[in-house]
Design a protein around this nucleic acid. Structure first.
Lengths: 161, 161
DNA sequence: TATTGTTATACTCTATAACTATA
DNA sequence: TATAGTTATAGAGTATAACAATA
């Protein structure tokens, strides 16, 4: 044989799944400023402790200049709010509004349905396994220089704030 | 609690892993025209039967106009070649040159090392499992309208052409 | 002087729509 | 008329650098 099929390539699978996921979620999140990325910002903003923009940007893998636009749009829609960090008035703390939390509940529902469609080829056990493995890889990549990780691990354990 | 952590989000994990993968492979494939996408085109072109551009473009998830540029660059580097399909002279059949095959062997080595770094948080069994699950989801997404799938499945079975 | 967030500019991708040559 | 591939154009998205406020 001359070469392996491209289907054996991790990059092909990852790219195909990623594109499929984007397509499905852009549809599910129609109307939400920033689409899937706006959803991630909103999710992060809905955390117990308000988070600084830069920390969030790094954690979500978006440039800090892009983060400004994303938050502008979400703030204009009344879903999140910025306020200066008392500990360092250069920084802005981001938190979700009541309206943002309500919108997030709705978005979560749509996202769960979209994800089920994307992972339609897998049975429930396989879906959980895939989520777990992806999360493990992603956490390892994000953790080293991310102070959030510990807090989030802890929050995940007891499921509360 | 107010909301789940963003780490529980499939989109966050998928995006983070995908970005990490891109970063690692762009580095590993430095000098290869088209980077990771050029690598996928080259891999597809190295198949037993030459493939039409459009079929390949759809399977790789790139626009046909982008495919033209990608192939132009690979052809200028002497790694692939186009020739008219005798069965339909509008179409071009793409195949790898000897030089392209040699470059692919080298690229495969670099890619395996890069992927091992990206999946560093997983043990060998988990890596195989992740590949398998992603491939399953991707194949389901690509298969319905993709005539390649059957051929490639068959080729994967006996590992030859 | 270094850092957070913002703004402005330039660049790179991508999507759309012609255009050709075949069918 | 419809399709494969190419080319040209416009738009979206992204990266870079400069700037203001604060440390």
């Amino acid at each position: 044989m001359r070469a392996e099929a491209v289907e054996a390539d991790l990059g092909w699978a990852l790219g195909t799944v990623f594109r499929g996921y984007l397509r499905a979620t852009e549809e599910a999140l129609a109307g939400l400023p920033g689409g899937p990325r706006g959803y991630q910002v909103l999710t992060s903003a809905a955390r117990c402790e308000p988070t600084r923009q830069l920390v969030m940007a790094q954690h979500l893998g978006v440039d800090r200049t892009v983060m400004t636009y994303l938050i502008d749009d979400l703030e204009n829609a009344g879903l999140v709010e910025r306020r200066p960090d008392p500990a360092d008035r250069r920084a802005r703390l981001l938190s979700a509004t009541e309206r943002g939390l309500a919108r997030l509940v709705e978005a979560n529902r749509a996202m769960r349905a979209a994800e089920d469609r994307v992972l339609g080829a897998l049975d429930p056990r396989e879906r959980d396994r895939l989520r777990e493995l992806l999360r493990k890889v992603a956490m390892a990549d994000a953790a080293p220089d991310n102070p959030c990780a510990v807090v989030q691990e802890a929050a995940a354990l007891d499921g509360t704030c």
